[in-house]
Design a binder for these strands. Structure first.
Lengths: 160, 160
DNA sequence: TCTTGACCTCAAGTCGGCTTGAACTCGTAG
DNA sequence: CTACGAGTTCAAGCCGACTTGAGGTCAAGA
């Protein structure tokens, strides 16, 4: 397969052209040349984009992702860091699982006030546990920053 | 226990005072009155905040959260919607799990180019699957919006 | 040759969730 | 009585990840 133009890359990855330009600007992908003004991409960019999309889906920031990718293949990251990232994800998963259980329980539980239900409270507690140590997903980025910027107060939500 | 001022609520929940004011402004919490200018909170706000924090940790937007909370206890949401939310979370969890496995595998696998490793490719595929149907976490909010705004191209990353 | 439409650049806008800063108000300890 | 410090308001700023819009370019088909 020959070089592709931006439209084709977009079509084949589902990533909008504007985003592709943005990624190029950020150094996440590179075009291998131009035809006139138009970017030309090597098909290998598809794999790279698959990895980028993967990372984004995992809640990683673009900066983190580019830190994991060499100009060509994958891990510029040592095994240790990869494992660390995996563990991060693991904590997130546990947290989300607890929340899911809380939700399911709330849907099932007869208690009028869910907070009076021990099971629910337990789920809430689990979900909250480690809240501030865990690598935050998405919207928590800002919060994580603020944690380092100004010392966070206590960090645990007491329920009485 | 008596009414608390904002500092105490903050201390006991770990939520910054500025955030508490912001939440009040958004109608997520309410103060029970004032002493002079100062807000007074009923201790019940602690539970409410626990739930809000829970929701945030689950990647829910503030709007969604307030849609789940009655002025007092929890679910204004019917069981169906709670289950739907739980399922949403479930998909997210599956996606994250696949990504975690991809990461772990990348750390372990001897293949120089991880994309040449079938196991890795499989994980990538799994992680990507349903990418655009699934309720997005955090940073994907914007993307989700854009999905509805302008029709997304194909939606699957082909690796040919 | 001319037109067209896909692509380009650059600056600015958007969105959510907060934080920050300036200027002000009070209850309370001294 | 007064000063202090914790609280208040309001507008503005910030961050990440993009999107949008205006105005420009250019390869290829009629």
């Amino acid at each position: 397969m020959k070089d592709m133009d931006i439209a084709e890359v977009s079509r084949r990855t589902g990533v909008p052209a504007s985003t592709l330009r943005y990624y190029e600007e950020k150094g996440l992908i590179a075009s291998i040349g131009r035809r006139g003004l138009r970017r030309l991409f090597d098909p290998a960019v598809l794999e790279r984009l698959a990895l980028i999309v993967l990372g984004r889906a995992g809640g990683f920031a673009l900066d983190e992702i580019s830190a994991m990718l060499t100009p060509d293949g994958l891990p510029k990251m040592d095994r240790g860091r990869l494992h660390a990232k995996a563990n991060e994800l693991d904590h997130t998963i546990q947290r989300l699982t607890a929340i899911r259980e809380a939700l399911r329980h709330a849907a099932r539980c007869p208690a009028a006030q869910p907070m009076e239900c021990p099971t629910f409270r337990r789920a809430v507690r689990l979900a909250g546990a480690g809240r501030f140590e865990v690598a935050p997903i998405g919207p928590f980025k800002a919060e994580a920053v603020s944690v380092t910027r100004r010392k966070r107060q206590t960090g645990d939500v007491s329920l009485e």
